[in-house]
Every structure is written in C-alpha cells, then in structure tokens.
Design a protein around this nucleic acid. Structure first.
Lengths: 208, 208, 208, 208
DNA sequence: CATGAATGAGAGTTCATTCAT
DNA sequence: AATGAATGAACTCTCATTCAT
C-alpha cells in the first residue's frame, strides 16, 4: 500500500510515460487523473504536485514527445551531406521514429484537429522547428538547382501528413480489408517501404 | 421561449448543424449538451429526445458530414471521362468541399486520432467509399498505362492528408508567420492553387 | 401510428390496468409515464389528460384495486351466517383474491412501508373498511362467547400480513430452496391450503 | 465546512446511518444523494467515493441493517434453553429490535414489495438465516413433541409480518382512531404487550 | 514526498408535465 | 380525443483539484 518510492525523478518519468500513452490513446478529456494515477501506481495528488494541473501534465507530455522527435531528426540530419540525402534522412527518421512511438502521430493529429487549443508554446515551437528544418533542406536543394517548383508547406504536409495517417489508421485499415478483401489498404506494408515510397514520390514531385 | 418552432425537421437540423460546428471546433468531450442547446436555441432535452444521447448525436453528425462529402465527390466524379480528369476532379472537389465545410477535416482527423473509437459504422463506410473511389480511378489509370508504380493507400493519404492538414493548420500557420516572417507557410495560398499544386505533384508522382 | 381509438372508457381502462401492473412491479417512482404510455399503446399526454398527474393516476389505481377487493370480500361476507363462517370467508376470500391479483399485496406493502405517503384518502378508507369488517366479525364472536382474548388489530395483521408476505415473497422463496434444499419455504403450497392453515391457526388463537 | 473530519470510518458511518433513515422513510427513489449528503453534513461526492453509486449505498445500508438485527437475535437466542423459551426470545428480540430501529421493517417491506429487486445477496442471506433460526427452533419443538402441525414459513410470516405491520402502520393507526374512535387499532399498545400477545397466540397455534 | 479524504462545479440524462395542432 | 414536440427542474455521477496528515 505504501509505495514510498521517494524518488522524484522516477515518479515523474512514470507519470509522463504512462500519461503519454493514455492521452494519445484516449485523448485529453477522456483521460482522467485517477486513471493516470492508477496506471502508474502513483498517488493522484502527485500528478498535481509535480505538474500543477492536468493541462500542465499534458504540456509536459507533448514537450517531451516533440523534444525527442526533434532531437532525433535534427541529430540524424545535422551532417548536411546533400539535399537529397538530407531529405531522405528527414523522411526516414520521422517515419521510423513515429513507428517506434506511435502515440506521437495521434497526439499531433489531435492537437491539430484542435487548432492547437491546448498546444503549449513549446510544442508549437517544436513543430515549427521541424518544418523549418525541412524548409532549409528544400531551399538548399532549390539553390543547387536540384529541386524545382517547391512549395515547402505543402511538401511538408505531404510527408508528415501521410506518415501520420499511415500510423493512426492502422487499425481501421485492418478492419477495412476484413470487409472488402480486394481493397488494397497497404495493411502489411512495413514502415521502411512506406518511407522509401514517399521519398521516391517526393523526389519525382521535386523534379529530381 | 421565442420561436416555438414545433417543427421536428427544423429542430433536428438546427441541432445537427450547430453541434457539427461545436464538435469540430472543440472536440467531442469539450462540447457540452448545454452549450449545444443554447447555441441552437433549443431545449437541452430535445437533444436526447431526438438523438438518445450525446454519442448518438455525434454519430448523427459524423454520418451527416460524411454523407454529404461523399455525395458531392461521387456526383462530381460520376462521369468517368478519363483517369486524369477524374483524378483532378477528385482532388479539386474534395479540397473545395473541405474549404467550404472546414469542420469536416477537423472531425476526420479527430476521429482518426481516436482510431475510430466513436466512429460509427456509417462513417467508416463513407471513408472507405471515398478511398474506393480513388482506388478505382488509379486502377483505371494503371490499366490504361497512364499511371505507374501506384500504391493507392499512400496516394490517398498524400491527397487527403495534405488537404486536411492545410485546412486545420490555418490558424497555426498564421501564428507562425507572425513570429518568423521568412518562414513560408503558404498562409495566403488559396485552395484552388493548393488543389492544383497537389494535382500536378500527384501527376508527377504517378509518372504522367 | 394513429390509433385514434376515440373511446375514452377503453383508453382509461387500459391505462389503469397497465399501470397497476407496472406500479406494483416496479413501484411508484420507478414507473415512468413514458413506460405506461408505451405499455398500453396510448399517447403519453392522455395519462395527464385523464388523470391530471402521476399521483392522480396512482390514486386511481389504488382505489380501483381496493374497491374491487373490498367489494369482493364484503359481498361474500354479507350473509353473516356465523362468526366462524364469516371468519373463514374473510380469510379465504382475501387470500384467493390476492392470489388472482398478485399486484395488490405488493401495492399495499409498498404503501404501508411508505406510511401512506401517497396513499390517498379513498385508499385509506378502503383499508379501514376491511379492518372494520374483520373487527365486526370478531366482536360478534366475542359476544357469542365463541372467541376469547381478541386483539382485533393484531389478528388482522396476522391474517393480512401473512397472506401478503406469502404472495410477495414467492420469487424469493423459490430462490431460497434452490440454495438450501432442506429449508422448507412452503414454496409449492397452494393458496387454498395456506388460507385453510391460517384459518385453523386463527381458530386456535381465538380459543375455539 | 465546519467539521473537516478526515476520518473515513466516521464519515462512512454517518452516511450509512443517515441514509438508512432516509431510505426507510422515503424509499429508495425518493431519497436523493443531495438530501443524504446535506443530512449528514458530508460532501455529496463522498457517497460515490465510498459506495460507488446509489445502489451500492442502498446495498450497504440493507446489509448493515440486517447484519445487526441478525446478530442481535442470534446472540440473544444462542443459549438454546428450551424451544418455548427460544421461541419467546425470538419474538421478543425481533419485536424490540424493530421498535428501537423502526426503519428496518419499512426497509424490509419495501424490499419484499419489490421482490428483492435491489436486494443484494447479503441481505437475502440474512433474511434466510433469520428464517432458518426460527425453523430450527420449531423443528426442535416438534422433535420434543411440544409443537404440532407446524408450517414454519407461515408461522414465520405470522410473527415477522405482524410485527412489521404493527410498526409501519403506526401513523396510519393513529390517523384511523382520529376518524372513528370506536375502532380499536391498538394504537397505544406497547411493543412488549404486542410481543407477548403474539407469543401466546403462537403457542396456542402450535398446540402448546 | 506521499497519501487518502474531501470538495465544488458541472456534465449527461431523465422525467413529469404542458403546448400546439 | 389524441399526438408529438417542447420544457425545466431535478438527479446521479464524474472529475480536476485541494487539504490534512
């Protein structure tokens, strides 16, 4: 009954990780403090002790998620080999990261469908940085006359939106083929294949 | 108090239309029955009288929205001129419809980020039909050797996902340029331009 | 959809009979106007049209029930043959009537457990008349030196209470023997046997 | 607001005791959570915190009531002096207990008039145990050739039903004599007298 | 740090009752 | 006489949040 862990860091981490899953699975409103507390074996009051309130926890969760994705993509891309390489890295890294952390796309879509109502500034920043990164790659490609006719925002959406949908629709796509077999929903396409496919298509789009 | 409509059809329509806006703006949980009732000048109990419960209303809203988009896209596309024409129609119609009814993309994204937890069968069906339509167009294009290397699900996501994101991120994109001017977020691109851009990119992608 | 019976008497009777069953089965509060209306295929508003409000309907139901039991017992007993005969008639008639109309005991017990909160005057009267009838029989028996040591109220309760419990506990008694076979709950005793048993015991009690 | 008890046991007890009175006085449906909360100076949410829902509270109340009566009757009777003594004890203890806790009979009658719809298993058990106790006494009396012609269930009803009615009808009986003075409703009979009267009558019934 | 008790402000839902036709 | 639409006042239950220990 008395966990008495007395390990602030551990407790905080447990809360963040558990609630990330719950928030992404059930959404912000449908996730209750009680539920989170029970799921991580922590007293409910600790959530408020550490994160002030539910919105604060949500913010922390989003920041955590975005920071990590951002770190990953940035770090992998920081070499600036060549716009095409960089582009490939961007797509693959994002795709694989999302696959490993499938709650992220759900969180993002949810936030976007909310026009960023809860979206705290840090998250907003993170998303902008991600886009800024792609923007830079594309701009560099244009400068080198590799890419043509570039509308970065739309290209960004085509990459990120597709990957997000691919991940969040997985259960639906399964259900779909169960109903109508000959509808090819790419259900068992693996992520690497998809990332590659997208990369090739984007290449075509950019006139490479 | 003032209207005393006593017109079931009108009352039901008012409820559906109002709550569609509210649901898409604030989400399912954050939209209260009180709010809906007040917003359409109808007694709260009428919501339950007509739709049994909140989930029932939500289902009705989703069905309504999807039915109408589906009808629109289908009807505009029913001529089957030529795969390329059909493709263009598909993209343009979807894009313009979403622009006119900007709550729809938000509703869709929200549902998807939920893996269709609330998503009633009719909605699921509607979404499948939309995809089936694009699938057919693409398949026909392949048969006529116009399109090559087609993965319909991914193409679908590239079209629909991009348009959805474009619409739902509008407020964010505005906020973004206010902060960092030289980041081109395509804020004042109009929908027709975007649809066209997407169409041209998809054409390239399909090897046309 | 349009029943349009336009037969006031029939409609009223349907309402009374149906709601008697519902009230006795589920109790006053747990029985809704909607339920009654649906159960008798009558428009809900008619209930209020004919009985003013729910309490009014309940009153009508109770009156109806009590009137009929009272009529039955009185009429059977009106001959005044002999105190013992009269007593036997009283017990048997009441028991058999209750068996034929098993909702009555439930209604009575419920009312009593409410200390007659809803109990309208007419019902109160009816109950008093029933007791008055037994009182008279017992008094006559005493006068004829047949009965001795009579406390009419308690005798009344011993008769009426036992019969009421016997009927209302039927389902419980069944459940009970299913659990513990050798507990004799008189489950398949028929009413006539019970009435007779009670009569004989009351005779003993009265010193006959 | 004033007490800040922070004493779970005390709070739970307050809720149980208060709601027992309210349930027995007004019935299950007519007793609201608000009312209970206010009556015991406890926040309404505590009811649900401790008892999950209204039905849970009701169950707890019934269990509590029955446990205590059962304990009392059993403990007073555990000596097994002599069937007749035991019988007298059974009747007297039950009668006096009910008089001290007059909500119990009302609760019981209400439950019975409901055929035990809410009646949770524990209550059902308790009632059975009470009857089992009387059954044993009667059986022993038969074995010792003291009692004859015993139908335990009916005898049980005659005892328990009479006492229950005597208590629950008290207000009605008062009202009755106010109307018709010469109707002897045993209004000021005290409980001991009644218990004694019943015992003597039961003795006669059993052929003692 | 950690816990369980306590709180208050709703939220969804129900329902008797009335109104207009 | 009959109907379906409409209403408002409850009522149960939930939940973020705070308090006392």
């Amino acid at each position: 009954m008395q966990k008495k862990t007395r390990d602030a860091q551990a407790t905080k981490a447990k809360i963040i990780n558990t609630s990330m899953i719950l928030f992404s699975t059930n959404g912000y409103d449908a996730t209750t403090a009680d539920e989170i507390a029970k799921a991580c074996g922590v007293n409910k009051a600790m959530i408020f002790y550490y994160y002030k309130n539910k919105a604060g926890l949500y913010g922390a969760v989003l920041s955590h998620a975005l920071e990590s994705i951002h770190d990953e993509v940035i770090s992998k891309d920081k070499e600036y080999l060549h716009p095409l390489e960089d582009l490939k890295n961007f797509i693959t890294t994002y795709a694989l990261y999302c696959e490993k952390n499938p709650y992220l796309p759900a969180l993002l879509l949810r936030e976007l469908s909310n026009s960023g109502a809860y979206l705290p500034d840090m998250m907003f920043d993170s998303m902008r940085k991600l886009f800024a990164l792609l923007s830079k790659i594309l701009k560099e490609g244009e400068k080198q006359k590799l890419f043509s006719n570039v509308e970065p925002m739309i290209i960004h959406f085509m990459i990120v939106g597709t990957i997000n949908l691919f991940i969040t629709t997985k259960p639906l796509r399964k259900k779909s083929i169960e109903i109508e077999e000959d509808l090819n929903t790419c259900y068992d396409c693996d992520m690497e294949y998809v990332a590659d496919y997208i990369f090739n298509k984007v290449k075509l789009m950019l006139g490479v």
